[in-house]
Design a protein around this nucleic acid. Structure first.
Length: 115
RNA sequence: CGACCGUACCGAACAAUCGCGCUGUAUCAUAGCGAAAGCUCAUACAGUGAGGAAAGUCCGAGCUCCACAGAGCAGGAUAACAGAUAACAUCUGCCGAAGGCGACUUUAGGGCCAGUGCAACAGAAAUAAACCGCCAAGAUUUUCUUGGUAAGGAUGGAAAGGCGAGGUAAGAGCUCACCGGUGUGUCGGAGACGGCACAGCCAUGUAAACCCUAUCCGGAGCAACACCGUGGCGGGGGCAUAUGCUUGCUCGGCAGCCCCUAUGGAGGUGGCAAAGAGGUUUAUGGCAACAUAAAUCCAAGAUAGAUGAUUGUUCACGACAGAACUCGGCUUACAGGUACGCUUGUCGC
RNA sequence: GCCCCCGUAGUAAAGUGGAUAUUACAAGUCCCUCCUAAGGAUUAGUCGUGGGUUCGAUUCCCGCCGGGGGUG
């Protein structure tokens, strides 16, 4: 099974832009999902979370990132390996509750055939 | 009790489970490096983990690098006076001015008699004075000329100290009382300045207009800077003449492999994390800002960037808002709450 | 994080402290034309915002707000 419970985070900017250009896109009301197959590293899964500057000030952006990370943490052991996942927060996500975001993320992940 | 003023402070609390950054200790069977020790990763336990403004980046410093014999100019900043401070555009006290019944608050507040500029429109006239008016003289006769005048009218933000009385041909600080402002003297004060007395009103506003006076200022900023460093491009030496290119051949040259070395992209480490112009209390000095002494307290340190979720209980039902080298201020945002002191109004004793 | 720059009609730009803030394009209305184009006339500004200096501020000074750029 998975060797680490730790979530690998996506850091490089060019991988973000690759995911936006070439990845498959699934968007819901609260978040949008970009999925890209990682050819180089087959057995890892990487996560990137993006909150635009127009969504609010620093406190609101940090809080939104925490909510998304908490929602993703539930599904992390079941997600298939070898993918780059980018989650983009949309405007309603700033004031949303965790349970709402979790249910929507579950629907999007199953739609993307990652579960 | 209500309203107001000033100063200081707080910025939801507790418990359980899961999860995150850093530090320490232990383990390292498994994953990576290594001959090994061990290190990284991981796991377990313990500790610790955002603010009063962390914000805006508006001032002032520390720190680092660059430049620099000395002096001046240019440019910039500040501006009553005295002090505090490492320093400041900050703070304290005080003076003047403005506001408030008051507690108290606000105040870029030097110099237009060093010089220059500007003051549109209106108005006769804007720094220079006679349009109307008033008075006198002369000529002519429903007015005109010459002279005097700054009381009154009209314009304007501003018209030459204000108001009253005397005075005069009419007027005028021409003279006088009061007020205002200027100068001199004297008294008080550390000083700005204030009180009193005398003299005397030849003259607007603007210096956040140029400027003058006094004081201060070299430049850039932690993405500074220092170190490690392999990819590339270089330099030197060695190996091999096996292979490719350069012409069909030979020599030579380039490419090749290894070692040393300079620069130093990506990346990493330090700077930088517990401790300094630090907080609290007490004592002394001072009106105060603050200073001195003693005791005592302090523990975030990320690098796409750590504090969240769920459940339960309670309340005032939770605003503004996230450290990024570090301090002192200023400015701006903010649900609500607490303490002390003062003023004023009403009621009661 | 740090360092800078800019806000004027819908857009792009001018604008010595002094009249109702100027020009071009665009937009609306009217005239001209059988209709359209061209042409002519005309309309619309809280000069980003709050204070201050001044008789008077788009302009000078200060504080906020918004936008943009640079960063061996």
């Amino acid at each position: 099974m998975e060797k680490t419970k730790r979530i690998m985070t996506l850091k490089e900017n060019h991988l973000f832009s690759r995911a936006y250009r070439k990845g498959r896109c699934f968007s819901g009301k609260y978040v949008a999902l970009y999925v890209l197959k990682n050819m180089r590293e087959r057995d890892t899964k990487k996560l990137g979370i993006t909150v635009s500057k127009s969504r609010g000030n620093a406190v609101k952006r940090n809080r939104t990132k925490r909510i998304i990370r908490e929602a993703y943490r539930v599904f992390h052991p079941f997600v298939k390996e070898g993918h780059i996942i980018v989650i983009v927060a949309r405007q309603p996500c700033v004031d949303a509750h965790v349970s709402v975001v979790t249910s929507e993320l579950e629907a999007l992940l199953s739609k993307a055939a990652l579960l």
